[in-house]
Design a binder for these strands. Structure first.
Lengths: 345, 345
DNA sequence: ATGAAAGCGCTAACAT
DNA sequence: ATGTTAGCGCTTTCAT
C-alpha cells in the first residue's frame, strides 16, 4: 500500500497540513521541520496521490491531444511538438486518435470532453460547418489546430494553408512551369486543408495568368504515401502533358515521386515537385523535396499557451484566431529560381 | 459548474446509489427508474468526475507509454499500435518522451511511477544491467518493450532482435554478398537493440563462413535518417570494397540509401541493402526496402494484455518473457534469392 | 509556523 | 430494487 500524507505526518511528528506545505513549497515552514518532513517522505517513498489532488483542486495537469492518427508522420511530428510545449508548462498529454472517418471523430469529441483532462487540443480533420454545433458544445477548454473554421466558436491556431499552398505553386510557376498538377484534392470541400490548399493553388495560377484546368486536380481521400502514388498514377494515365506537381502534403509528394521516377520522368528536370509540411524525410528523399514549413513548433507553443489561458481565465473572452508564419523551403525537387523572374516581368 | 451524482439524484427523485447503479450498468434497476435517471443525466449533461472515481476505486484506466521520441517513426508506429490495443481494452494512453539521453530516461522512469496511471509500458532505450535496480524499484505495474534484459526483473515483450538481424544478414549472404557493412552499432553495448542486432549479424557471418571485420561495423549513436547518411559516408571514405549493407533500422537504411545513390552505387546491383522495422515508408522508397517486420501489433497486444493481468492480479507471479515472431520482407533493395542457394551448397 | 476539520464526487458495504 | 453512509487522499479555510 502506498504511503499517504497521514503516514508521513505521523512519522515526522507533524500535522498533514505541514507536510502539504512542504510538498507545495509553502515558504513559511521552519527549516528543521522541513528537513524532518523530507526525511519522512524519503523513508516512506511517498508520492502524492494525483487523483486525490485532482479531485480536490479541480486540476489534473493533463491535456488531451486529439488527432487522426499517429501513423501519419505529420501528426507524429505535431504530437512531438505539442508534448514538448506541454512539458515546458508542466502538463502531460493524453493522445486520442480517431482514424479517418467523421463518425469516430465526432464520437471522440463528444466522449472525451469529460475525460479527466483540463483542456483539449483538437486537430480537426473531417468536420465542417455542419458540425460547428458539436464543437461549440464542448465545455472543456479547447483550442483547435491546423484548419481554418471561419468565425469558429473556439480558439484556433492555424497554419497558413492558402498562403502556403499559393507560395508552393508560385515556386513552380516562377520557375517557368505552366502545366502544374495538384495532388490530394477533396472535391467539394471548402474549409479543410484540402480545400484551402486548392484555393491557394488557384490563386497562384490566376495571379500568373495560367489557366485552371480541372483535369489537373487529382483527388486523394487520405494523404498517405500510397494515396500519392495512386493519384499520380491516375493522372499519368490521362496522358496529359505536365511539368510540375504541387502535392498537398509531403507524404503525397513522396508517393508521387516514386511513381514519377518509375515512369521515367526526371525530377526536377522534366517535372518539378513541391510538397507541404516539411517532415523530416524531405531532407533525405532522392531528390530532396521542396516544401512548405508550416511552423509546427510555433503552432504547438501558441496553442498550449492559449489553452492554459483559457483554463485559468474564469472570464470568457472572445475566441482568438492565430495564424503562424510559414516558410518556403527550396530543395532539389524544384530547380533554382532566377531571383527576378516574375511571370509578368 | 458541472453536475454531480447528487444533482442527478435530486432531479430524478432517487438516491445517488441508484444513479450510480444506472451508470455502472447494475442490472437490478427497475426500467422506469432507469429511464427517469437517464433523462435526468441527459438534462443536466452529467458526466462522471473521473478523478473522484479514480480516487475511490484506485483505478484510472490510463496507462503510460514511455518512449524515446515520437519524431522517430518507429516509435510513432509503436505508439499507434499500443493505443489501438489499449483502446480495445478500454484504456487511454499517456505518452512520455524522454529523448535520447540516459539521464532523462532514468528521471522519467522515477518520476512517472506515481503519475496517476494504472500501469506503464516502457520502451527501454539506453539503460543496461547497471540500471536494473532502478527498473526493479518501480512499484507501478510495468511491462518492458522492445529490448532484451536477461533475467529481467519485470515482464518483457520483445521482438527477436538477434534472430531478426541474423535473418536480415543472411538475406544478403544467401544472395552471394560477402563484404557486408553493419550500420548503427553501439560499441561496447551488449543488451540493447544495437548490441543484439550486431550479435545477429556476427552469427550470420560465422554460419556462412564469412570473416568478421571490425572495419565493416559502423557506429551510429542515434538511429535517425541523418545518422544513417553520416555513417554510410564515413564508411565510403575508408574506400573499402563492399557489396551489402545491413542497417540496424529502416531510417538508418534510408539515410544510407540516399548516400549510396549519390555516390553512384546502384542498389541492389552493386550494393544490396536491408533494414529493420518495416516502417510504412519502406514500401515507397526508391528502390523499396527489404526489411524485418518485428511484429509491432503483436508486441503491443501482448504487452497490454500482460500489463492488465499484472494490474489485476494481486498475487505476484514470475516475470514473463515473450518474444513475438518476426518476418523477413524481401523487396527491391535486395536481389531475389535463388531458392536453394546456400553458402555451403 | 503549525494544527483541526471540512469536503471535493464517487464507489461499495451494508441496510431494508 | 433502492437508500444510507463511510471513506479514498488531498487542499484549504480558519484557528491558534
Amino acid at each position: 500500500m502506498a504511503a499517504t500524507l497521514h503516514d508521513v505526518s505521523r512519522l515526522a511528528g507533524v500535522s498533514i497540513k505541514t507536510v502539504s506545505n512542504v510538498i507545495n513549497d509553502y515558504p513559511y515552514v521552519r527549516d528543521s521541520t522541513r528537513q524532518r518532513v523530507l526525511a519522512a517522505i524519503a523513508e516512506l517513498d511517498y508520492t502524492p496521490n494525483l487523483s486525490a489532488r485532482s479531485l480536490r483542486s479541480g486540476r489534473t495537469n493533463v491535456i488531451s491531444l486529439i488527432i487522426p492518427e499517429l501513423r501519419n508522420v505529420y501528426f507524429a511530428e505535431l504530437a512531438d511538438s505539442v508534448m514538448r510545449a506541454a512539458s515546458e508548462r508542466g502538463l502531460s498529454v493524453l493522445i486520442e486518435q480517431f482514424g479517418n472517418d467523421r463518425e469516430s471523430e465526432l464520437s471522440v469529441l463528444r466522449n472525451r470532453s469529460g475525460r479527466m483532462v483540463d483542456g483539449i487540443l483538437y486537430s480537426v480533420l473531417g468536420l465542417d460547418e455542419a458540425d460547428r454545433q458539436a464543437i461549440a458544445e464542448v465545455t472543456t477548454p479547447m483550442v483547435l489546430l491546423g484548419e481554418r473554421i471561419f468565425n469558429g466558436p473556439k480558439d484556433h491556431v492555424t497554419m497558413q494553408n492558402v498562403e502556403g499552398s499559393r507560395a508552393a505553386t508560385e515556386l513552380l510557376l516562377d520557375g517557368g512551369r505552366r502545366r502544374v498538377v495538384a495532388l490530394g484534392a477533396h472535391p467539394g470541400e471548402a474549409i479543410g486543408s484540402a480545400g484551402l490548399r486548392l484555393a491557394g493553388y488557384r490563386e497562384a495560377l490566376e495571379a500568373a495568368g495560367a489557366d485552371y484546368d480541372e483535369r489537373f486536380v487529382i483527388p486523394a481521400g487520405t494523404w498517405h504515401r500510397a494515396d500519392g502514388a495512386r493519384a499520380m498514377r491516375a493522372f499519368l494515365e490521362t496522358g496529359l502533358p505536365f511539368d510540375g506537381v504541387v502535392a498537398f502534403n509531403d507524404t503525397l509528394a513522396l508517393g508521387a515521386l516514386r511513381v514519377l521516377q518509375e515512369a521515367g520522368h526526371r525530377v526536377p528536370d522534366d517535372v518539378a515537385l513541391v510538397g507541404f509540411d516539411d517532415i523530416d524525410e524531405t531532407h533525405y528523399s532522392m531528390p530532396t523535396l521542396s516544401t512548405i514549413d508550416p511552423g509546427r513548433d510555433e503552432i504547438a507553443r501558441r496553442a498550449v499557451q492559449l489553452l492554459l489561458r483559457r483554463i485559468a481565465d474564469p472570464e470568457p473572452f472572445e475566441p482568438e484566431e492565430i495564424a503562424v508564419p510559414f516558410r518556403v523551403i527550396e530543395r532539389e525537387s524544384t530547380p533554382a529560381r532566377l531571383p527576378a523572374l516574375q511571370p509578368e516581368g
